[in-house]
Design a binder for these strands. Structure first.
Lengths: 173, 173
DNA sequence: AAGGCCATGTAACAAGTTACATGATTAA
DNA sequence: TTAATCATGTAACTTGTTACATGGCCTT
């Protein structure tokens, strides 16, 4: 949130939440409620300060010098470990008993969704490379693209590994 | 947890937690405390039942028929969305102001850690393919390997994108 | 200017983490 | 047989999610 505030300037909780979705949502989720709670905490710490209350008691927050210093310190300390949760791998890992047809449906839906994401990232990166040129931003989008490419490759190799699922003969009739 | 219990049989909370680490830890984390709380919930629902209390009031839980049915239903319903949190992408996204030398250190550490993981998955999968042959298990490990390959590729392309970080000239002297 | 819709914020709940307590086991 | 260590469980706290309340804005 400090990073976002430093890049987009004074914003209220709701707008900050939407920015987070757009700018870092693919590798760091944040709900609206969290944003408000955390803004309160950051204000108490003196890392952000709010302007006057506007409509619906909405206030625009901006980062303070102290907040900028804290952000830099946090970044300098280095990243925490990744959190990867792939529920579909649980489906696979424990899904030997599922009807093959159902398993195929699940995998097809998964595949479609990620195919779309992959195209999205591909286009976004191409777009960024031609127009804007913040390489730090491009780097994050590229990670998304490569991640989706890995998912696609995995899906491509699956039928060879799970013939009983993909073999039509074994489908429910 | 129901999936684990159905595969490994009666276990106490601690052992179940360790099994989770080993068997699904790479794509689904679960702390020991969560395991205990959830076992309680599952017991209340009648999805698991406990044997007699042993040492340190430890009890071995096993899955019930009702639990097995609930598991199958859950699996059939299809997987939830993925959760991906890559703190290093925040470091990149907001780290333009970091000292290049520090950024390189961070990336190097990151790279080393993932290189090790990649080798681990590669060996594990090869091992599994030759000895055991639960294809569902192999599929999950393979995902790990492909994910790490994507990370590696990303790292390989980074210097081209962020020359100011990797160019020796711009390092602190 | 009244009704419906959206923007903004809040509160209650659920999931996840950290730190601690305590009873067994092992080794000297 | 005592001290140290480990296994097991619990409690307190933090983070994340869901559902709700309410006030401003737009449309008619």
């Amino acid at each position: 949130m400090l990073g976002l505030l430093s890049q987009i300037g004074p914003t209220n909780g709701n707008a900050l939440s939407r920015s987070a979705d757009v700018l870092i949502g693919d590798f760091w989720t944040l709900t609206r409620s969290q944003v408000y709670r955390e803004l309160q905490t950051l204000e108490d710490l003196g890392y952000v300060k709010a302007g006057p209350a506007g409509a619906r008691s909405s206030r625009d927050f901006s980062i303070t010098d102290k907040g900028a210093a804290a952000l830099k310190e946090w970044l300098t300390a280095g990243p925490a470990d990744e959190v990867i949760r792939m529920p579909i791998l649980l489906t696979i890992r424990f899904g030997a008993g599922l009807a093959p047809a159902r398993m195929r449906e699940i995998l097809t839906a998964f595949s479609r969704r990620h195919q779309a994401k992959r195209e999205f990232y591909g286009e976004l990166e191409a777009d960024m490379r031609s127009t804007r040129n913040d390489p730090y931003e491009i780097a994050t989008v590229r990670f998304g693209r490569l991640f989706e490419a890995a998912v696609a490759e995995w899906l491509l190799e699956l039928p060879e590994l799970l013939p009983t699922v993909f073999n039509e003969r074994s489908a429910e009739e």
